[in-house]
């Protein structure tokens, strides 16, 4: 990281939750929809506490989850999210095992519920799930005894991504409330966009959505966002520009005529970046399609790109989530 980072947050959540309850009373983390702002801020606050340890050159280890088993059940391919959850679990001392759909009995026709029951019978203490179908993670969470963390389900939610994005914005900008955040790309198929809209709206940001009409979900304006189809019109006044990944299979003529045409209309290059606020932050959930949704010079912008920092915050946020959700089972005082 090239620039000085803030080490404390301006929002302090610990005293904001109702008296007499735990700061995060939910059993699972299935999405950010429905979470209160103090619950989101509490997770961000807890994540902050892990950043220094993660950065230290000394041993990055805490043993609070020692002896607990965490299963990362990934029914859809992933590199960074899986790795991030695995590192998060291991840094907290847990025994982390990964299950890939490609190697599992899912290919042999076992139903999702049966797979869930199997994982449950192995007495996992937390299960992290990614699945290509919206709602699949919730379906599994109804059938298991331990906390379930959604690592992305279809086009529904990706809560830890939204939390890590919020943490990144909060640290870079000092606040979220009142910022104008522009999300551009394939919003229709994006769980990242949905979770970010819900999370950042709850935390008080102004949201702008930029997408071609065919990739704009119906009724999205009901969630308090302003919809644009012209990227140039959406950029002035933006504090944060969040680019979304465009899946290759969507730009072969079904939704988008060609990658170069998409870049022409919705790619973030230096000219467009100049339309936003001079200190606008550049974000991308990765993996990036350089030259299709974002120019390399923008993605690698020394001062304004937060893309690598997002990855870093991902580990801290996931550590916080694993810690919080296992507190009840670990008998942490006040979390019964």
């Amino acid at each position: 990281m090239g620039i000085a980072l803030m080490t404390t947050t301006l929002n302090f959540a610990a005293d904001r939750f109702p008296a007499g309850s735990a700061a995060f009373p939910h059993r699972h983390l299935l999405g950010v929809t429905g979470l209160q702002n103090y619950e989101l801020l509490y997770i961000l606050d807890q994540a902050e506490t892990w950043i220094a340890m993660n950065r230290s050159a000394a041993a990055k280890h805490d043993d609070r989850l020692s002896g607990l088993t965490i299963i990362n059940a990934f029914f859809e391919n992933s590199t960074r999210t899986l790795l991030s959850f695995e590192i998060a679990g291991k840094r907290l001392g847990a025994d982390v095992v990964n299950m890939h759909a490609a190697q599992s009995s899912v290919k042999k026709g076992e139903t999702l519920i049966d797979t869930a029951m199997t994982l449950n019978a192995m007495r996992a203490d937390a299960i992290v799930i990614r699945h290509a179908s919206s709602g699949a993670v919730q379906l599994i969470s109804d059938k298991v005894d331990c906390p379930v963390l959604n690592a992305g389900d279809g086009a529904h939610e990706h809560p830890t991504q939204a939390l890590l994005d919020a943490l990144t914005i909060q640290r870079r900008k000092g606040r979220i409330e009142g910022l104008t955040i522009t999300i551009c790309g394939d919003v229709l198929h994006s769980r990242v966009a949905r979770s970010n809209i819900m999370c950042l709206k709850t935390l008080g940001a102004q949201l702008r959505i930029v997408a071609p009409p065919a990739l704009t979900p119906a009724g999205i304006e009901n969630f308090g966002v302003t919809v644009f189809h012209d990227f140039d019109a959406a950029l002035p006044g933006s504090d944060v520009i969040m680019m979304l990944r465009l899946q290759n299979e969507r730009m072969q003529g079904d939704f988008i005529p060609s990658p170069r045409e998409y870049y022409h209309l919705y790619g973030l290059d230096e000219r467009r970046l100049a339309l936003a606020k001079p200190d606008a932050l550049i974000m991308h959930p990765g993996p990036m399609n350089r030259g299709i949704e974002i120019a390399s010079s923008v993605a690698d912008h020394y001062e304004r790109s937060a893309i690598r920092e997002q990855v870093e915050m991902g580990v801290a946020v996931r550590m916080a989530c694993l810690d919080i959700l296992t507190r009840k089972a670990r008998g942490v005082e006040g979390w019964s």
């Binding site: 279809g154 086009a155 939610e157 949905r194 979900p217 009724g219 009901n222």
Partner: peptide, 15 residues
């Protein structure tokens, strides 16, 4: 059916 519910749930929807 395309609308706020389908969008919230991330379901594939048609108008």
């Amino acid at each position: 059916t395309a609308g706020a519910t389908a969008t919230l749930l991330g379901l594939s929807a048609a108008p």
